[in-house]
Structures are given as structure tokens and as C-alpha cells.
Design a protein around this nucleic acid. Structure first.
Lengths: 139, 139
DNA sequence: GTGATTGCAAATCTTTTGCACTAAA
DNA sequence: TTTAGTGCAAAAGATTTGCAATCAC
């Protein structure tokens, strides 16, 4: 019998230096094989349950942070008391719809910011984020 | 005896439509008479205690939100699980030093962003925030 | 086997809330 | 007075941690 090629998620985890455990592989599938997503730990836990994957919420949190540390995800903080995890790790920005608590990507290409001062000495820029907060149209 | 003119903080609160209670006036003084500050509820509560002002933490939270609602403060969310309140309500942006958990203002003048898409229909822009995340210099 | 990973429940931390009490107008 | 505001302690969320059991290699 010809050995199966390891699924993509397994390879992604290996590359990232994370042991491909059952739950990591399952979560990686949900996250990474489903296009640009902005998801909370709670939501992902819900999806996992819906997909009959047994994972504890604590493991979902740990896994999200491990993925973030490994560069597979990006954490986005726009609301007090809740973190979103973004499967798009390329340079880009966000609209945040405050009424719907919903993030939307703004592609990073073509956006130019001028006039920013240089960072204080001893520090360097890790990331530049633009957040455009939206409310319901008033017209 | 000539009647005292009401202190500035009292007037600010009246203008904002907030009844100038003892604790609101005291907190307004700490916040508004001390230049550009980025403070958490916990920190402000600490300062109040240090200044021998008796306020409960719950009241500090309530007051910060009332002040924010009244346009006296601006809430800044850059870290999961903690809100900063900014006494600078003019248009400006922030450096966030992740190592020190410290916010620094970036004046809003002279900063130009081009290439942003228009907001989705049914919504309009409430605020545009730039957050420049800093880490320790690696050189 | 052996060390990394997981699950669970308990703990932690920030923030909010209910309600009797106090104070501003 | 009358009503808004306050304090306290309890509740609520989100997230983390400790530790025994389990799994990948």
C-alpha cells in the first residue's frame, strides 16, 4: 500500500515547529483551509464542537496563541475583553463594524501613510495597524 | 465674602452634562489637569487612593465610561483584557510599546493616508486609528 | 519510554451589575 | 424632597494555569 502524503495542515504545523497533534491538526484545518477569517476562541471552540472534534476551550486558547507565535495567525485587538485571530498574516488593515462586532480586511497594497514620526530610540516598529471604526450610516 | 468661582473641573463636568459630584470632580482633576495621559482604571484608582480620595473601583470604571461618553476621554484598546483611557481627545494616533505596555501619542497633524477603500454601504467611518506597535530595537 | 500536549476544573483578572445608602439640586 | 450617583460585594466574561492522564515520536 502506498503511504499517504501527510495532509497539508500537518505539513504546515511541522514547518512551524509544532507537533501535529490531533487537535492542532483539526483546528488548523478549520482555520487555515477556510480563507480569510476573524475568529474568537469561543467561536472556534464552537466550530470544533459542531465538527465533532473534541477539544477543550483551554486547548483552543493555547493553540491559538501557539499558532500566533508561530506566525500562522495574527491577533487583532479592537474590543475590550475579546481577542480576534486573523488567518490572514500578510500585511493588511481592518474595518471594524462596531455595531456588528465584525472585522473586515482592508488589503495592504496601495495604502500609503506619510508623516509618521520615527519610533522612540531603543525601539523599532513591529507592526503598523490601521483600524477604521465604522458605525451605522446616519443619512 | 466673595463667592468662589467654580473650579475648572466643575465647569467641564457641567458643560458635559454630568453632575459634579465629589468623586467625579476629583477624578476629573487627576485626569484633565495633568496633560496627555493614558491610564487604566486600576491606575487611576491607585492615584486616587494615593491622593487620599475615597472612590471605589466600580465608580472609577463608571466614571471613565461616563467621561468617554461625554467626549472628555477616549478609550484606546491595544491589549487584550485591558482598556486605556486617553485624555487627549483630538485627532491623533499611537505608538504602543509592547515591552513596556506603554502608549505614546502621535500628533494627528501632517499624517496622510491614501489608498483606503470606502466603507461598506450602510456604514460610515466613526474614527480612524493608527497603532504603531513597537518592540525592543534588535541592532 | 519520554517529554510534549491535553483536559478539566479551579484560579485570575478586568470589568459590570444589583441594590441599599448618600448626596446634589 | 427627589433623583442621580456611589460603594460594596457579588456576578460575569475572557483567559490562564496546575496537574494528572494521554499521545506523538
Amino acid at each position: 500500500m502506498k503511504p499517504e502524503a501527510p495532509p497539508k495542515a500537518v505539513l504546515r504545523l511541522r514547518e512551524a515547529g509544532l507537533r501535529p497533534t490531533r487537535q492542532r491538526v483539526a483546528l488548523a484545518r478549520l482555520l487555515l483551509e477556510n480563507g480569510g477569517r476573524h475568529i474568537t476562541a469561543e467561536q472556534l471552540h464552537g466550530e470544533a464542537r459542531a465538527a465533532a472534534i473534541r477539544v477543550s476551550l483551554a486547548t483552543v486558547y493555547n493553540t491559538l496563541h501557539q499558532f500566533t507565535g508561530a506566525g500562522l495567525l495574527r491577533e487583532v485587538v479592537v474590543e475590550p475583553g475579546r481577542s480576534y485571530f486573523d488567518t490572514n498574516t500578510t500585511e493588511h488593515h481592518h474595518f471594524f463594524d462596531e455595531a456588528k462586532s465584525e472585522l473586515l480586511d482592508i488589503g495592504g497594497d496601495g495604502i500609503v501613510i506619510s508623516g509618521l514620526p520615527r519610533p522612540p530610540s531603543g525601539t523599532e516598529v513591529r507592526r503598523l495597524e490601521i483600524i477604521v471604526r465604522l458605525g451605522p450610516d446616519r443619512h
